[in-house]
């Protein structure tokens, strides 16, 4: 009895999953890889691939169609950026407005090193005198 119940349960679960997980064709994998780099505008801390918001489902469908019609990955990403802005990119592009974002940490590192060098030199001078 228990075994039958378990069997039914696993069947039910796999049916539920089958509806939300796209197929495994090369096209679907490509679409999901791109969607994994894009932000869902509705639930902003999820990727387009993870989100179950209706807009995300629609957009995944459209991305898949665009890929099927022969657009390159970059063209599909550009399509999204044209409509929703740079904000949809989880990996920000390297452009003047993002220089601080990309290089800021290195600036802080260099600043820290310079501070450290001066600090150590001063301590050494104090020791000598």
């Amino acid at each position: 009895m228990h075994k039958i119940f378990l069997l039914l349960l696993t069947l039910a679960i796999s049916v539920c999953n089958a509806q939300s997980v796209p197929g495994n064709s090369e096209l679907d994998l490509r679409m999901m890889r791109i969607a994994g780099e894009l932000r869902c505008l509705v639930c902003q801390n999820q990727t387009l691939a993870d989100s179950n918001a209706e807009l995300a489902i629609d957009l995944r469908k459209q991305l898949r169609e665009k890929l099927a019609s022969g657009m390159s990955d970059q063209e599909v990403i550009d399509f999204m950026v044209q409509r929703y802005g740079d904000f949809v990119l989880y990996k920000p592009r390297l452009q003047p407005s993002t220089w601080l974002l990309w290089f800021g940490p290195f600036l802080i590192l260099i600043g820290g090193l310079i501070f450290l060098v001066f600090r150590i030199r001063r301590l050494q001078n104090e020791d000598r005198s």
Partner: peptide, 13 residues
């Protein structure tokens, strides 16, 4: 009906 024009306008909410 299918929200295509909405997507072209960048509608999300």
């Amino acid at each position: 009906e299918n929200g295509r024009v909405g997507v072209d306008f960048g509608v999300y909410g």
